[in-house]
Design a protein around this nucleic acid. Structure first.
Lengths: 237, 237
DNA sequence: GCGCACTACGTACGGTGTACGTAACTACGA
DNA sequence: TCGTAGTTACGTACACCGTACGTAGTGCGC
């Protein structure tokens, strides 16, 4: 035996308990909850194997019995917050239902700002993610379209929501580890942007700044985006 | 003086050269090119301050004269590849022009797969990013819409392209540091997905798998997505 | 009851970002 | 013209990271 060949693994395919030996001190849910707690409190960078282990009250390396790689820990986290989706009874109005789903996703990402960074990694399909996908498909039953099209709709809607929130929170998550506040960071960036626009090198951009003088209504931008996505899938649209 | 207060900084606002002292051995372009070279060859994880310095042939800490934080290095990289956009003369057909832009973005992200991970961080607006935005606005001159709407269009299109490529490459970038191949990883994930779908817990998802038996035409999915986004902004759409 | 698979976890290694100190150098103010 | 202040260059050092590996204890299946 020249050492077991390295073989890929999906954490969800590995049984949580295998009958033999002492029974585990924690469940996957415990671990995910601890990691989510840390991330909520201190940002994604606060989620290290050592910290999570400490939060659980066990040795660092004991964590590796449950989670073979840190990536798998992230997968647990994504699944845990995917489970926070409220899977309501479809009403028969697919547009309204999907709007509700999308708004829920946004709320959820505001509650867990670090999610956008993990979502862009697309960690396979965890159980709760599959449940949510199935729920969306149920909401889309009234829509007469091919199954593939419906999945494209869900993917595009989720993608747009993620991108939107990512833009919204761009600095918020990043600035945590920095020695200055988000307001300061934003102020500096906006000042630079203003100076560039004022330089005259970007006339159309400058014109756009002059045109929309007032503060931007982010909620309205979000809602418009949703409508546009759904429009793209509405019959005779 | 009790030490300078920490103050945020945008790397683009800091002058590349300040007349005093010996002249720098490298330009920002040199540094960005070195980092991009490393990332192209070995993935984003190969971009460490030490590696970039070695690639340039200087001491690690010398890099910090040019780039105060690693984040700024990323910003340089994003700017460098943003500059790879071909800024063609607008044709007057805004839809065709924007399609061309979007396809170019996709090509560009295929050439630099690590970009998707950086894009989701939204590193402010670098010079080349602003140039590209201005170019898009020029392409949109024929479109009769408010300036804000046009910017929403560009943001949404870019976001969708990024999300799409991110899904497309989800494993490709991640798997680099792992001891197994992308094919193996994909096979295992698909096997798990299949087993879950076959479990009967996700009837609609299962039905969708049965319906689209053949392999998915990714290019067609991409083109459909673009059309849908543009439809959402076309007059009397 | 034996043995094996599992849990638990300490130690250690190679990597990371970067704070800090020192030495050489150059352009500006006097 | 010359000092000196502001740069560049870079070695050392620190705290932290993910995790390979080894060892000890535990409890189920045979």
């Amino acid at each position: 035996m020249a050492g077991r060949a390295a073989v890929p693994e999906v954490i969800w395919a590995r049984p949580e308990r295998t009958g033999r030996g002492p029974k585990p001190a924690f469940t996957r849910a415990d671990i995910a909850a601890a990691a989510v707690r840390l991330a909520d409190a201190g940002g994604l960078d606060a989620v290290s194997m050592r910290h999570v282990a400490a939060e659980l009250g066990c040795g660092t390396m004991s964590l590796y019995n449950y989670v073979p790689r840190k990536e798998d820990l992230f997968e647990l986290m994504v699944d845990a917050v995917s489970g926070e989706h409220e899977l309501f009874e479809p009403t028969g109005d697919w547009r309204a239902d999907m709007l509700r789903n999308a708004r829920q996703t946004k709320t959820l990402m505001h509650r867990h700002p670090w999610m956008v960074r993990l979502m862009s990694g697309v960690y396979g399909f965890s159980p709760n993610a599959l449940r949510y996908l199935e729920h969306c498909l149920a909401c889309l039953d009234p829509l007469e379209a091919a199954a593939g099209t419906k999945i494209e709709l869900v993917a595009m809607l989720n993608g747009c929501v993620t991108t939107y929130v990512s833009n919204e929170l761009s600095t918020a998550e990043r600035v945590r580890s920095l020695p200055w506040s988000q307001e300061q960071e934003n102020a500096v960036r906006i000042a630079y942007l203003g100076s560039q626009v004022a330089s005259g090198a970007y006339p159309r951009l400058a014109a756009s700044f002059l045109e929309d003088a007032g503060p931007i209504d982010l909620d309205a931008v979000f809602e418009r985006m949703l409508e546009r996505v759904l429009d793209g899938f509405s019959p005779r649209g």
